[in-house]
Nucleic acid binder design. Structure first.
Lengths: 244, 244
DNA sequence: AGGCGTCGGTCCACAAGTCGACACTCCGCG
DNA sequence: CGCGGAGTGTCGACTTGTGGACCGACGCCT
């Protein structure tokens, strides 16, 4: 429960570019939180009380409960380019998706009510965050289309790439079963895909750990969805989207 | 190019419940447009100049271009419960998805800049539309998860149901090839699914036309995604989501 | 009436993905 | 040390979905 210094804002791309006056509006309400993988930021159905800004290599995800298969399918990854919580949904609306930490690290946290109050005072703040909303929606649009038309192999590659650009690293703690659930597909098939990638030298795996060796090869195996989204972030948020 | 009367606002659920003062803010800028299927409301990459409110049985969709297959995959259907354009993305941002009319009918149209100006004056308006944004995001979340984990048969049923609740009718003009493209799947397989549905008496088809005969059976064939979304619209927008 | 383009039905070979079963192995724990 | 649980590898039978090809036939146009 530490109050962040001005430089802590630099860890998140949305906060880093704020004007001084807007930063001063938010800063007193911000709290630093260092979180572990699997920590829950918001639960589907519960009110969105907090808004979270991943910093540095921290990363979280949104996932949606699927009745029939009894699993949580991932619909978006969010790193230091974005935020989780009351950015789109104002006020204390119930969250539709669950959000949990995928890569441990530092988050800045603010009460959604405080964020709302600040947005009430600053048009710039409103516009800036609503630009991000637009990007988030675009990201999920692309995911929906991707899930409808691309193979599991392509989507696996896409996931690894997305995680890399966000964390800046090439190693992720995650079991193959978790990955399968995120993608909404069967575990054994993911194992087959992973073996293929490994045999081709693209990745290495240990128990519960993935390591990317050859990014270029991974890009070739992936679909064009990654680039499409990066481009939209670029034009809407002026290139603050993390590139490699 | 007709100026709408107060009662025209009743055709769209988002506009119908506006307070008088907010309606008066928007009304002078609203224009009635009667559109045909396939008319384009916004094109991916072009600025979102207009915002559209489907009225009555009118319906439009968002679709995303998929490089590899060279097709436009549908990611959301919007009827009288919602809006298309500068609702999420403020200002003149480039549209990420293309939107076109799926069911002919009446739309109310407003310049996004005029809408922005009105939102600047009215907190209620801002909050109301941002509630809808949240619902739209939820809808696409669900679609993304659905596309990842449900069969084409289920998704076909879901599409027909979604279209029914929006238009209030049970007949749709659409070729099987169009349906296949929307779902992002092969045409021949859709034909097989359609035949199955038809043989079971759930639907009837003519050249370019679908007719739903047995809604209950269709619901059983569909996945739970439809209900999940309806519930969220219910709680966030207080039950204005069109039910049957 | 004839002509023609689009749409729909069908078949087939094949690829993608599922699901259950089972064995193995790593690793933490008592 | 041995136990046990979670994570992984693998197999095989099966279902789902693809993509090409081809034909028929519906319906619009002149």
């Amino acid at each position: 429960m530490t109050v962040p210094a001005a430089e802590d804002f630099l860890g998140n791309a949305l906060l880093a570019v704020l004007r001084d006056e807007d930063r001063r509006r938010l800063a007193p309400h911000m709290v630093i939180a260092d979180l572990e993988a699997k920590d829950v930021l918001q639960k589907a159905g519960e009110d969105v009380v907090q808004t979270w800004f991943p910093c540095g290599a921290a990363m979280a995800s949104f996932s949606v409960w699927v009745e029939e298969s009894g699993s949580n399918v991932e619909v978006a990854l969010v790193g230091r380019e974005g935020a989780i919580g009351g950015i789109v949904s104002n006020g204390r609306l119930p969250a539709f998706a669950t959000s949990q930490v995928r890569a441990a690290g530092r988050f800045l946290r603010i009460k959604t009510s405080a964020l709302e109050a600040a947005k009430l005072e600053s048009i710039a703040l409103r516009h800036w965050f609503s630009r991000y909303s637009d990007c988030m929606l675009a990201q999920v649009f692309q995911t929906a289309a991707c899930n409808a038309s691309h193979t599991i192999s392509q989507r696996t590659a896409k996931w690894l790439l997305a995680a890399m650009t966000r964390t800046g690293g090439s190693e992720f703690q995650m079991t193959q079963e978790q990955l399968a659930e995120m993608l909404g597909v069967g575990r054994t098939f993911v194992t087959r895909v992973v073996r293929q990638f490994r045999e081709q030298g693209v990745i290495e795996t240990r128990r519960g750990v993935f390591t990317v060796n050859d990014v270029t090869a991974l890009r070739k195996k992936s679909c064009s969805c990654t680039t499409a989204i990066e481009d939209h972030f670029d034009t809407v948020l002026h290139g603050i989207y993390p590139v490699e």
